[in-house]
Simulated assay, not measured.
Amino acid sequence: MLLTALIAGFTAGAGLIIAIGSQNAFVLRQGLLRNHVGAIVAITSLSDILLISAGVAGIGFIVTEWPSAIYLLQLGGAAFLAVYGLQAAYRAWSGSGALQASQSGAGASLKAAVLTCLAFTFLNPHVYLDTMVLLGSLSTHYPGAGQFVFAIGACFASIAWFVALGYGARLLRPVFNNPNAWRVLDAIIAVFMLTLSALMLIN
């Protein structure tokens, strides 16, 4: 029973976390730049652990009881994604992203990278619905110790994914030695972020 709960938690967590999202795009870019990767991986993983644990503990009902808070997060998240998307569009247009990459880890300060990562994580209302509400609800199918083990499985999925994404991105570095590859990546990120921003305002 406990093994089943662990596998279920890992599978459910992986299914939600690995889905393409603004946070993943940010972690991927930081990994390619080799810019504060350890800090970014730690923040994203620990944030998920915190939210998953809160959901399994039953705090997820707060999210559903405060729809106005979710609405404010949507507005803030939409604005943040729009700004970041426009910055990516500028990098794609000017080719400045490749210049950052050639600096071997130089670029945004640790403080700027951490604040940006926190914004991507906590200004996204879906992160609360996915981790606290959905995973919290799924965990109730495994009562007792099984619920705790389910949470461990989901947390492990988060850690494994962000470590693989952040540190595995360097395997793509040969591709991104070409400045045009950075322009394509930034163009994709720009379209993705601006689309997400619009969807947040519409939904």
Rank of each mutant, 00 (worst) to 15 (best):
S137V: 15
L165F: 09
A39N: 10
M193D: 05
L81Q: 09
A88V: 12
A98D: 03
V56E: 04
R34W: 08
W182G: 01
T116V: 14
I7V: 09
I189L: 08
G136N: 11
A145L: 12
M1W: 15
I188G: 01
A160P: 09
L46D: 00
L165Q: 11
A82N: 06
R34I: 05
A187Q: 09
I20T: 06
V163Y: 04
A101I: 06
N180Y: 13
R91G: 12
L46P: 03
L194K: 08
L28Q: 08
R91I: 00
V163C: 13
L86R: 03
Y84W: 15
A19W: 07
L135N: 03
N203D: 14
A181L: 07
A119R: 08
I189P: 04
A88E: 13
N24E: 13
G95T: 00
A82Q: 00
G76Q: 05
A145M: 14
V41Q: 04
I52T: 05
Y128F: 15
N178M: 06
Y142P: 06
I62K: 05
F150S: 01
G166C: 14
I49V: 07
Q100E: 15
V114P: 05
L123D: 07
W161R: 02
L129P: 02
W161T: 10
S197M: 03
L33K: 12
Q103F: 13
A164L: 08
S109T: 13
A119S: 11
H141P: 09
A145V: 15
A181S: 08
P143Q: 10
I52A: 01
Y167M: 10
I18F: 09
I43K: 05
I7E: 07
A69I: 14
G97K: 12
S94F: 06
G9L: 04
Q87M: 14
Q100N: 12
L185E: 07
I152A: 09
A5Q: 04
T131A: 15
A160Y: 06
A108C: 07
S197E: 06
Y71H: 15
S47L: 00
P179V: 03
A39Y: 04
N203Y: 15
G105D: 09
G105H: 13
A145P: 08
A89R: 10
Y142D: 07
A98V: 01
V37I: 01
G76T: 10
I40M: 12
A12G: 11
G9C: 02
D186K: 04
L75F: 03
Q30K: 12
V175Q: 06
Q74I: 12
Q23S: 13
L81N: 12
L6G: 01
A19E: 02
L165S: 12
